[in-house]
């Protein structure tokens, strides 16, 4: 007997009377009057920064204004001026040393500052290895809560909800931004 058969037969042997899946109808999840406003509040609470891109403003100029010292920008977005492209690097390690990574988020969540970033690039390391991360979000894609978010997303193989910069409190419970991944996250809302 394979281990798979062994485990499944043990489960059936000890198995219990099946219990029904609950109905989701009793749940009325939080909604906000203004999702954009709430998203901005929550995104800041989780340590992120937020910039609204006004019509007619160049996104590259905006990124430069937030990161004037950045020398290496990595992005596979065609409209972003970048020195490195996660689609064309031969190996993820080449992205080490990136100052600013720029990616596009598909769904933003007002209740917790999460933005869904699916892997649309060859090397997703850009999301984590960059010192700072810029996530571009369309204001039409901001939803109230995770229930709405999960009903909208699709995962192409890898995808991540990112809520602010990498953080830790593992030393004496003191909150520090920039544990292993980006130390700074800027949400650009277009």
């Amino acid at each position: 007997m394979t281990s798979k058969q062994n485990i499944l037969s043990e489960i059936r042997k000890h198995g219990r009377q099946p219990i029904e899946m609950p109905s989701f109808e009793t749940l009325s999840p939080v909604r906000y009057e203004d999702c954009l406003e709430q998203f901005v509040v929550t995104a800041r609470q989780v340590g992120g920064r937020v910039a609204l891109l006004e019509e007619g403003t160049d996104i590259n100029a905006l990124i430069r204004s937030f990161y004037p010292e950045a020398s290496v920008i990595a992005s596979s977005l065609p409209f972003v001026e970048a020195a490195l492209d996660p689609d064309t690097v031969a190996d993820a390690r080449e992205l080490n040393g990136t100052d600013v990574g720029v990616v596009k988020g598909e769904v933003a969540v007002a209740e917790n500052g999460c933005v869904w970033v699916p892997q649309t690039m060859k090397e997703r390391a850009v999301l984590f290895i960059s010192e700072c991360l810029v996530i571009i979000v369309d204001r039409k894609d901001i939803v109230n809560n995770m229930h709405e978010a999960y009903s909208r997303i699709d995962n192409p193989g890898y995808g991540c909800f990112i809520s602010g910069p990498s953080k830790t409190a593992d030393i004496a419970q003191a909150l520090v931004m920039g544990a292993q991944a980006a130390r700074d996250v800027l949400y650009v809302i277009v």
Binding site: V109, C114, Y158, G159, C160, F161, I162, S163, G164, A181
Partner: peptide, 14 residues
């Protein structure tokens, strides 16, 4: 926290 910073979904190899 309202969410962990990263909620990562792995649906296949890189």
């Amino acid at each position: 926290q309202p969410s962990t910073t990263f909620t990562s979904h792995f649906r296949g190899p890189r």
